[in-house]
Design a protein around this nucleic acid. Structure first.
Lengths: 209, 209
DNA sequence: GGGTGTGAATGAGTTCACAGCT
DNA sequence: AGCTGTGAACTCATTCACACCC
């Protein structure tokens, strides 16, 4: 059975909320309560879970620990994921320094840049390699996920190279509408787009008369 | 008439593509061609535009410059937007240094942090003020948009403070499901969620037998 | 009583397909 | 001939509402 992207994208949200509850010692939760915390309807949550199994107990709710385990298994969060970063400029270095990936099992194991001034630098214990070596490096030591933080004009080229190395999930920070072949997953981090999506409403509301 | 969020979120994408075409000297484009470049169907694009007016010419297509102007007007991109950043740690400083906001009319005009060691630092010509002064500062010199880059545990408090100051659009980098009152717009930048949405598929595909 | 799991009903969003302008 | 603009058809997603179980 085909599960919608929208459903899949909500699962990590649920997992995060459950991890919070778990760390606070909570052991049972209802779809209602979970939904209130996440701005999602209780019915939505129950339906989403129902695609994967029956994890709750009628009259009681869900066991937090058990449900969290299930979600982590479903999402593949119970293992380490190896990532390669391409582009080690300002943005790339901020990504390298970001402390939020590790605890969630995401580890950057290679970093590339094409600027001779950057190559050889050691950031957070990782030595920056020349982008020219990307294909050779990733073919001998594959990664699961690619992170693209190069200027817009080079992003598609880099993405194509990653795909050639068998990377089938890419997190792209460059502001372009990237193309990837079927079977390759792509997510976009694009703050400007997010801002522009909001100014539409500000514009409308800011004119009271 | 009520326009869907999904439509609004595609408009900036169109605007960006048109700006590219314009800068390359192109002056007419069809919905087909625009769609091919963005992985959106031609019908979708025509329908999206139709909510706002009739911008094309049958048999010819759209005038790039004119359509871009219309979209910029609709999205409010033809003016400057004042933003306040809260949280000037690693992430916050990377945001302050990001070169992509300015050219699109987004300017960070205030930066706050609660760490005494950070307060007073000058980053990119902007002096970091204590978060305690946030409300006083923003009440006397309002901003349009707030950017939140504080640790998860403080994010909701900061968001509430911004809302009290009349900020009605917030870009949140903290990994929480934030709550905002009706009429306040919120977008989330959350790379970990994006990654976790992809590992679901990797997990499934990685087990061939 | 309380809360899940789930078909059925509703609602939203996208695509179709074609009339009509250039 | 070519491409827009748009109702109508369709597909996909969410909510409803209730049988069922703890």
């Amino acid at each position: 059975m085909r599960i919608s992207d929208l459903v899949v994208d909500r699962l990590p949200l649920y997992a995060r909320a459950l991890a919070n509850l778990d760390s606070r010692g909570r052991d049972v939760v209802s779809s209602q309560e979970l939904g209130d915390a996440l701005n999602v309807s209780a019915a939505q949550i129950r339906k989403d879970f129902s695609y994967f199994g029956r994890f709750g107990k009628q009259g009681r709710g869900y066991n937090v620990r058990k449900l969290l385990d299930e979600l982590q298994r479903i999402l593949g969060l119970n293992r380490q994921w190896r990532m390669a970063l391409v582009g080690a400029g300002r943005l790339g270095r901020a990504i390298l320094g970001y402390q939020g990936f590790g605890p969630q099992g995401f580890r950057i194991v290679e970093a590339f840049d094409s600027d001779p001034a950057a190559i050889g630098d050691s950031v957070n214990g990782l030595v920056i390699k020349p982008t020219d070596d990307l294909e050779a490096t990733l073919r001998s030591k594959p990664v699961d996920i690619g992170i693209v933080a190069v200027p817009a004009e080079h992003a598609q080229t880099v993405i194509d190279a990653l795909v050639r190395c068998g990377v089938s999930a890419i997190l792209n920070y460059a502001p372009i509408a990237a193309r990837v072949p079927n079977g390759v997953h792509l997510r976009q981090i694009d703050p400007v787009l997010a801002l522009q999506g909001m100014t539409f409403y500000l514009r409308a509301e800011a004119s009271p008369k």
